[in-house]
Every structure is written in C-alpha cells, then in structure tokens.
C-alpha cells in the first residue's frame, strides 16, 4: 500500500476551513448586522426577522457623546497600558536575551507562568492585593487600578515577542557600532532599537486591541467606574438586545484597529528595511 502523501495545498485545507467558518463567516455576519436595522417593511429576511439596509446604526453611535467618550477612555487606557507594558518589558526582555547564565528558560517561564492561571482569577487576586496596599479605598483610583490590572495581565504578551526578536539580534552589529566609537546611548538608539522594532510592533498589536475590550479587568478593578468599548458592545448584545447597534460598534472598533495596524505595519516596514542594512548609516 502506498504511503499517504499530501501536497502543501492539501495540508492547508483544515486551516482554510477553520478560517472560513470561524473568522470569515462571523465577520460577514457582523457586517450584515451592522448595516441593517429591524424594519417590518424590510426586504431582507435575517433569521426570520425582516430588516432593511441602513447607516443609522453608525449615525446613532457617533451622535451620542457618551460613545465618543467611551472611545477616548478605551484608547487612552489602551495606549497607557501598552506604553507601560513596553517600558517594563523592553529592559526585561533585553536582560533575558543577553544574560550569559543558562537560565533563560527558567526566567521566561517565571513570566509566562501567570498565563497558566485563569485570567479572571488573577484579576480577582489583584483586587485583594490592591486592597491590602490601600490602593482600593477610593473611586478616584479606579482608572489607575484598571491600568495596573491590564499591565499585569498583558505583560507576558509584550515580553515574548520582544524576547524572540532580541535573541536573534546580531551581536556583531552592536560591537561594530562600539568599535566605531558610538556611545552606549548612541548604540542603543541607532542599532538595538531599530533592529527590535518588529518585536515592538507585534507587542503593540497584541496588547492594544485586547485592552480596549477586556472589560473583566475594568469591571473588577475599576468597580464599574471605568467603562470601555468592550463593555458597551457586551451590553448592546446581552442587555439592550440590539444586535445591529452592537455589530456597528464592533465594526467601528474593527476599522480603528485596522488603521492602527496599518500605521504600525508601515513603521515596521520602513524600519525593517533599515534593519536589513539599507539606509541605516
């Protein structure tokens, strides 16, 4: 009997199916819901409910000042969290990658280990911890507490990509810059930083989007005082039961995320070409 052989294309079929079923199809549904509205005289039949095409969901979203504020709060929170994550994890990843000790694996596990514990549980534990140190006795600190919780939960997602980039960093480039008389700061800004930009970009994309939507953290640590866009979408779906408006908000979020991704990718493309050597000097 002949051994089974698969071509590359055939091996890709399971993933393509998965993509179609769980990514493309839901996305199409979201778009469909976002641009429609329940209308008894509608001409489209969406699972037994008559709907008609409309932009109203978007107009409604942008005409409410509280929604604009939610966008600001969400992205403010996301930017602060991402920045803090980078500030903390960059040196850490650098040390991890450069340490001569053969303890890289152990050190890495130390930071990845928290990910093995349930997300909700970790957040609840953080609440008790914040209470113990007295950060939890005023509603003024809700935002700060939420940021702390978010940074805590998403730190591993920034350490990993930075670490993988830094471990591949060519040491000779740094040495060359030092040989040529560059000061340490100069070496860092002109050699190490540009070379690690791909890591930073993937870290940003891994943190920025989830922080705008993970309302478990903001609900638990912010005492319900911090409302983010994820919570608004959730309430549209489960409390208000307006799937059309909820999908529209999800679409808005999607578009904003695409824009930020496009910009960050542009960054990494430009700097990436520099990293390969052209235009660096």
């Amino acid at each position: 009997m002949k051994a089974l052989r698969f071509s590359r294309k055939q091996l890709g079929i399971p993933y393509a199916l998965f993509l179609l079923l769980f990514v493309v199809f839901p996305l199409v549904l979201i778009i469909l819901y976002a641009f429609t509205k329940v209308d008894p005289n509608g001409y489209i039949n969406l699972s037994g409910v008559k709907v008609s095409l409309t932009f109203e969901n978007f107009i409604e979203f942008f005409s409410k000042s509280s929604n604009i504020r939610v966008l600001f709060i969400s992205f403010g929170l996301a930017i602060v969290t991402t920045a803090l994550c980078l500030v903390i994890s960059y040196p850490l990843a650098y040390i991890l990658a450069k340490s001569k000790l053969n303890k890289n694996g152990v050190l890495l596990i130390l930071f990845i280990l928290p990910m093995w514990i349930n997300f909700v549980l970790r957040t609840a534990a953080m609440k008790e911890l914040l209470f113990a140190i007295g950060m939890y006795n005023s509603n003024k600190l809700s935002f700060v507490n939420t940021v702390i919780g978010m940074v805590y939960d998403y730190l591993p997602f920034t350490i990993l990509p930075l670490y993988t980039v830094m471990i591949k960093l060519d040491k000779s480039l740094v040495e060359a810059s030092q040989d040529l008389g560059a000061k340490p700061a100069n070496t860092f800004f002109r050699v190490t930083l540009p070379l690690t930009v791909p890591g930073i970009v993937s870290a940003v994309t891994m943190v920025l989007l989830p922080t705008t939507t993970s309302y478990v953290v903001s609900d638990t640590l912010g005492n319900g005082n911090v409302t983010i866009i994820g919570k608004v979408i959730e309430s549209q779906f489960s409390t208000v039961f307006d799937w059309h408006a909820g999908s529209a908000i999800a679409m808005v979020l999607l578009v904003i995320i695409f824009i930020t991704m496009w910009i960050t990718n542009k960054f990494s493309d430009d700097e990436g070409s520099q990293a390969r050597g052209n235009g660096l000097w």
Partner: peptide, 28 residues
C-alpha cells in the same frame, strides 16, 4: 451610558488627540 461613562478630563483628551495626530500625520 451617560452615567456609566465618566467625563474625561480635558488634559487627557488633548493628550490622546495629540498622540493620534502625531502618529497619523507626522510619522508618515
């Protein structure tokens, strides 16, 4: 929504606007 979403302090609003403008316009 009006109650749950807090009013944003002006400095924070401008800071975020600034960062976005910086990224969108200056960087390219």
């Amino acid at each position: 929504d009006e109650v749950k979403v807090s009013a944003i302090p002006a400095w924070l609003m401008w800071m975020i606007v600034g960062i976005i403008l910086l990224v969108i316009i200056v960087a390219p």
